[in-house]
């Protein structure tokens, strides 16, 4: 009960406040930009035609209504929230009149499948390898791994991914160059195989970079824990090494990693913009990229709101998991 009052409730409140502020900023920024989207659309539609001013005005009103732009900014703001609660993010301006939610819903499974899997793989792999390498710093394998990953880590991501595309999709056409899958969607072996084949290269690029990053972090964190007196005391008492690595070193260096995992998973809703563009992968990141090129404000706002809610929720979940992992947080 006390935990609920002193720990859970404040964090829920914080979560709510972050989302409200984030959505408000998302609402405000396009309206501060020069230019009126309604005027722009009208000009696009009526570029070379002369229209009766009265017809023009009703047309203007129709578009204004459709874009949700009638009334004062305050009225718009509250209507915006009302629509948001109904799950309505408005129509896409680039692919009018498809609703933004439909577009996002089309892209989301691809992004979640690709990013989610590679984040989980690289997180687990990076932490395990990093912790082991920290515990056995003088072994040949750990030093080799250290050197390889330290070389991979600073390579800019777009170069790494382009290299992979060129090597394994162009010069050696083992993997497909474009898209998420081919064939008829369905739970068939061929279709699932196609998904995996298409996802392999982008996933590899993400796992390589993610693993090397988490390896370096995990190694540094574990190194600090290994130097602590409770680890050397357990070693002195001849507690079995696997137990020391698992329950002493890993367990104590895991906390910041959980935050990292939550934030990475939260950022999922951003999509992996560069990955999806380089590999022409049909996820949210690719859509965001297209939306920016087409000045599709509604879609940009839609993706932004998704990622605000995603990250805020991820941080909330990480905060709520913390007490389970660290008793010191639980009893503060």
């Amino acid at each position: 009960m006390d935990l609920l009052k002193t720990y859970i409730l404040p964090r829920l409140l914080q979560w709510l406040v972050v989302i409200v502020i984030g959505v408000t900023i998302t609402f405000t920024i396009p309206r501060l930009l020069p230019g009126d989207p309604v005027e722009q659309t009208l000009r696009r539609v009526t570029a070379n035609t002369a229209i009766d001013p009265r017809a023009m005005e009703s047309f203007q009103n129709a578009i204004r209504d459709m874009y949700g732009l009638q009334g004062s900014p305050v009225e718009q703001y509250f209507r915006f929230w009302g629509r948001l609660f109904q799950g309505d993010l408005g129509p896409s301006l680039g692919a009018f009149p498809t609703p933004v939610t439909t577009i996002i819903a089309n892209g989301l499974p691809w992004t979640i499948g690709l990013l989610g899997t590679s984040i989980l793989i690289s997180w687990t792999l990076g932490i395990l390898l990093g912790t082991l390498a920290a515990y056995y710093p003088n072994k040949l394998w750990s030093q080799t791994l250290d050197k390889i990953l330290i070389v991979i880590y600073p390579v800019p991501y777009f170069i790494l991914s382009l290299l992979l595309v060129m090597a394994f999709a162009y010069y050696l056409p083992i993997f497909p160059l474009v898209g998420g899958a081919t064939g008829r969607p369905g739970f068939t072996l061929a279709y699932i195989g196609s998904i995996l084949r298409h996802a392999f290269l982008p996933a590899l690029s993400l796992v390589l970079l993610g693993t090397s990053f988490r390896f370096l972090i995990a190694k540094a964190l574990a190194g600090r824990v290994i130097a602590s007196s409770y680890v050397s005391y357990a070693e002195l008492a001849a507690v079995p090494t696997p137990r020391i690595i698992g329950r002493y070193v890993l367990r104590n260096s895991l906390l910041p990693q959980v935050t990292d995992l939550a934030l990475s998973l939260g950022a999922l809703f951003n999509g992996a913009l560069i990955t999806e563009v380089v590999f022409s992968y049909p996820g949210i990141g690719f859509q965001l990229y297209t939306a920016i090129l087409q000045a599709d404000f509604n879609l940009i706002m839609g993706v932004t709101i998704f990622s605000i809610i995603g990250i805020a929720t991820a941080v909330l979940i990480a905060d709520l998991i913390y007490p389970l992992l660290d008793p010191r947080v639980r009893y503060q």
Partner: peptide, 20 residues
């Protein structure tokens, strides 16, 4: 010195040390 693992209960630490 902080020789007791901060994330384990005292009981578990005893089990670790004796079990070894």
């Amino acid at each position: 010195m902080h020789v007791l693992n901060p994330v384990r209960r005292i009981r578990d630490t005893f089990r670790d040390f004796i079990g070894a």
